[in-house]
Amino acid sequence: MNTHRGILIICELAGNSVHRVSFELLNKAMELKERLHEPVDCLLLGPSGKDLNELNLRGADTVYYMQSPVFKNPEEYLFKENITRFIKQHKPGIVLTGATSFGRSLAPRIAAALRTGLTADCTDLKIDEDGNFIQIRPAFSDNILAHINTVTYPKMATVRYKEFEEAQIDSSKKINIVEIEPYVSFFEKSQVIDIFSEESIDISEAEIIVAAGRGIRKKEDLKMIEELAAKLGGTVGASRALVDAGMVKSTRQVGYSGNRVKPKVYVACGISGAPQHLAGMKESEIIVAINSDPSAPIFSVADYGYVGDIYEIVPALIRDLP
């Protein structure tokens, strides 16, 4: 007999605040709750002193706050061990995690430890006529939508950031935050080293992105992309080609297998526009494309296009922009 019940959202911090993907997950979880009639709870691991009231005000029945200084930085192994033990004790039926850089690394470790399935990068979730939790995700470069029903418990899914609207705040909601101690605060046989740096940045939050693609010939040439991004007040992104070539960290990758972004301005420099890349940036508010091939697919989604050599156009933009 299945003893798992309820929906658990694994939340994360973005600086000193709750990452906004948690509010998006709450919105979808509240829809599922209407069909399941089961509680929606949140679990957040972090240092003390964080204001988590908004999670209750946006719909969470109970917010579990596991506090410890060791959670100051998101370290997968320590987080995995504590979250796994929490899930084994509380037995939720569904576990949702944001498909952020950290969530994509953490969720598979939890699923493996629990010996359960995980559907990654979902774009929708629903409860079918038989009460099954159906996880929906694109497949074959967004050409089809796969509907997946996991048979093991808990049923786990990561959900793409900025896929759903955030749950609305209801000031009449009851604040119910339960502070709990960590199950594990250190590793006896390993040492966790703080190596977090600027490269842990989540570019999905950026409002302006200047992205480089296969048109960049060597790593040193990325300096002009960085200069243009700095001049626009934005950050640098990249296509998979540059990540595979070792020129850029994977945290900068935009696309189906990287980060999905929705900035106000997206400048694509030397990016042809493969379907996998377009899937990650086509919903940007304004898209500017620079490419020497006038038939490049990137121009099909661009608001503004420059046909020409990025080695001429990008330096000119840097020079002429105020």
Score class of each variant (00 low, 15 high):
Ser105Gln: 12
Lys249Ile: 07
Lys91His: 12
Arg58Thr: 11
Arg85Asn: 08
Ser105Thr: 10
Pro315Val: 14
Ile10Gly: 01
Glu285Cys: 03
Ile298Cys: 06
Cys42Thr: 05
Ser200Leu: 03
Phe133Tyr: 15
Ala212Asp: 04
Leu45Met: 08
Leu317Asn: 11
Gln191Asn: 12
Met30His: 04
Lys72Arg: 09
Ala268Asp: 12
Lys223His: 10
Ser190Leu: 11
Glu283Ser: 15
Glu12Met: 07
Pro154Glu: 03
Asp293His: 09
Gly234His: 06
Phe79Gly: 00
Ser105Trp: 00
Glu129Arg: 13
Gly258Lys: 02
Ile203Lys: 01
Tyr161Met: 13
Ile208Lys: 03
Leu32Val: 04
Glu129Asp: 14
Tyr304Phe: 15
Phe86Cys: 00
Ala230Gln: 15
Val159Phe: 00
Leu26Glu: 02
Met156His: 06
Ile175Tyr: 08
Gly6Leu: 05
Met224Gln: 13
Leu44Phe: 11
Leu44Gln: 00
Glu226Val: 04
His90Glu: 15
Ile169Val: 15
Leu278Ser: 06
Asp170His: 14
Ile127Ala: 05
Leu106Val: 06
Gly215Gln: 08
Leu106Thr: 00
Leu13Ala: 11
Lys173Cys: 11
Gly237Val: 07
Asp244Tyr: 12
Ala167Asp: 10
Gln253Asn: 12
Ala238Asn: 05
Gln191Ile: 12
Ala302Asn: 08
His147Gly: 07
Asp170Gln: 13
Lys223Cys: 02
Ala111Leu: 07
Ile180Ala: 02
Ala268Gly: 11
Arg109Asp: 02
Ile318Tyr: 08
Phe299Gly: 02
His147Asp: 12
Pro315Met: 10
Asp244Thr: 04
Ile136Leu: 12
Pro138Cys: 11
Ala146Val: 14
Ala113Cys: 07
Ala206Arg: 05
Arg58Gln: 13
Ser200Trp: 05
Ile201Lys: 14
Pro92Tyr: 10
Leu278His: 03
Arg20Pro: 03
Tyr304Ala: 04
Glu81Tyr: 01
Ser197Tyr: 05
Tyr183Pro: 01
Arg252Val: 03
Gly131Ala: 08
Ser250Trp: 05
Glu38Asp: 08
Ser257Ile: 10
Glu285Lys: 15
Tyr256Gly: 07
His90Met: 11
Glu81Asp: 15
Phe133Gln: 03
Ala120Gly: 06
Leu25Phe: 09
Ile209Val: 09
Cys11His: 03
Ala146Met: 07
Asp130Tyr: 11
Met281Gly: 05
Asp202Phe: 02
Leu242Phe: 14
Lys162Gln: 14
Asn143Ala: 13
Ile201Gly: 01
Ala274His: 07
Val248Ser: 04
Lys262Pro: 01
Arg115Cys: 04
Ile144Pro: 02
Glu181Leu: 09
Met247Arg: 03
Ile216Asn: 00
Ala211Tyr: 02
Ala316Leu: 14
Ala167Ser: 15
Thr158Ser: 13
Leu8Tyr: 04
Ile177His: 05
Ile201Met: 14
Lys155Met: 08
Asp61Ala: 06
Glu75Gln: 10
Ile310Lys: 03
Met30Val: 00
Ser204Trp: 02
Val301Arg: 09
Ser200Thr: 13
Ala238Cys: 15
Asn73Glu: 12
Glu198Lys: 12
Gly6Cys: 08
Asp221Ala: 09
Gly213Trp: 07
Glu227Ile: 02
Ile318Trp: 06
Lys264Val: 08
Val236Tyr: 06
Ala112His: 09
Ile83Glu: 00
Gly103Ser: 06
Asn27Met: 01
Ala14Met: 05
Ser68Tyr: 00
Glu312Met: 12
Val314Pro: 01
Cys122Val: 09
Asn132Lys: 14
Leu8Trp: 09
